[in-house]
């Protein structure tokens, strides 16, 4: 009777001991990875943004008695106050001042009045109007006294301090005998706008 080995020869598959040694080698390699593991981190980015719009802030003083600049009433945007002119005085009369601070290199001041630069007495009829000129002496377009409605302002920001300007009224020389008695009024509205 011929005896047959119950297992393949080692040369056919490699010896079990050799195979086991390869497993140990693989395990050792994995272990070495475990000893110096790659640390996978993760990142997100969040951008915080904010918008700064062109802006001007301003306020003003109104002199209750025009020409007397030592007594002023402080007003801010949206407010109003009254200045009493002396119609017998042909000189420029300061009715108030305004100051502004903008974050743009230039700004514009727009001046409008309810009665289109006329002092008006509602009961005065056709003779009840007194034409006048508004002046901002330090603003070129208004230094000459013309009733220009928009003028450009410089010396603005960003970061500039407040700039102050006087607002003058010139009623010229009036013959008061030709003017009906009563109160003559107009309302001056100043708007400051930041220019880009």
């Amino acid at each position: 009777m011929k005896l047959t080995p119950p297992f393949p020869r080692a040369a056919d598959i490699g010896s079990p001991r050799t195979l086991r040694a390869e497993c140990w080698a693989a395990a050792a390699a994995v272990s070495s990875l475990a000893c110096a593991p790659a640390l996978a981190d993760d990142t997100i980015a969040i951008t915080a943004t904010a918008e700064v719009a062109p802006v001007c802030v301003f306020d003003g003083q109104v002199f209750p008695n025009a020409g007397n600049i030592t007594i002023g009433e402080q007003i801010t945007a949206g407010q109003r106050a009254t200045s009493l002119l002396n119609l017998a005085d042909s000189r420029d009369q300061a009715i108030g001042s305004f100051r502004f601070q903008c974050n743009t290199p230039a700004a514009a001041v727009t001046i409008t009045t309810l009665n289109d630069f006329n002092l008006v007495n509602p009961a005065g009829g056709p003779a009840g109007q007194i034409r006048y000129l508004l002046k901002i002496p330090e603003v070129a377009q208004l230094a000459g006294g013309f009733a220009v409605t928009t003028a450009y302002l410089d010396s603005t920001g960003p970061g500039a301090s407040f700039t102050e300007r006087l607002l003058l009224v010139d009623v010229g020389t009036l013959n008061l005998f030709n003017i009906a008695p009563g109160f003559y009024t107009d309302q001056v509205i100043l708007t400051i706008q930041a220019n880009q």
């Binding site: 915080a48 700064v52 802006v55 974050n103 743009t104 920001g157």
Partner: peptide, 13 residues
């Protein structure tokens, strides 16, 4: 705002 140039300000965190 009066002290800042108009525009968008941002930083990325």
């Amino acid at each position: 705002p009066a002290m800042l140039t108009p525009g968008t300000y941002s930083d990325t965190i």
